[in-house]
């Protein structure tokens, strides 16, 4: 009897969220909205990424990044948040790790802040509402 092992696995592909050798890319999700955090986490984990931490404001995001470093591959960062906004948090994360890969997440209408973030070293940005394809495309562009 033939087993599954006897067939070539033409339909199987490595999920985009995993690097060479099948290790998942590790992400820290920073957003004050429980809904957005959940949405980003679901999109990324469905593609094999591993959410290693979440934070509800920029300050907590910075602290988590330092705590996780170097076991974190990239960060998704909301812009408008209490305590410390995403731009200040980005600045401090890059101060701590100049190679940090931070992707900004913003509603439409924050173009000036997004530009500022990109000038400061953010790798990319995603505009809400979040679309699965768009999120994965932007994330993969930023980490590869």
């Amino acid at each position: 009897m033939k087993t599954k092992m006897d067939f070539p696995s033409i339909n199987e592909r490595k999920p985009d969220g995993q690097g060479d050798g099948g290790t998942p890319y590790k992400v820290l999700v920073v957003d004050d909205s429980m809904f957005v955090k959940k949405q980003i986490s679901q999109i990324l984990t469905s593609e094999g990424f591993e959410v290693v931490g979440t934070a509800g404001d920029g300050l907590e995001g910075l602290e988590k990044y330092k705590e996780l470093y170097p076991d974190v591959d990239f960060v998704t960062m909301d812009i408008t948040m209490p305590k410390m906004d995403g731009i200040s948090s980005l600045e401090k994360i890059i101060e701590f790790d100049k190679d940090a890969k931070v992707i900004m997440v913003s509603a439409l209408g924050k173009q000036d802040l997004v530009k500022k973030a990109l000038m400061m070293g953010a790798k990319n940005y995603i505009v809400k509402p979040l679309d699965r394809v768009k999120v994965l495309e932007r994330v993969l562009q930023s980490i590869k």
């Binding site: 909205s33 429980m34 809904f35 957005v36 509603a107 439409l108 209408g109 924050k110 809400k128 509402p129």
Partner: peptide
């Protein structure tokens, strides 16, 4: 949080 986010996205635009 979901309804808040909906209002956020609409007003921002």
């Amino acid at each position: 949080a979901t309804i808040t986010e909906l209002a956020n996205m609409i007003t921002a635009q």
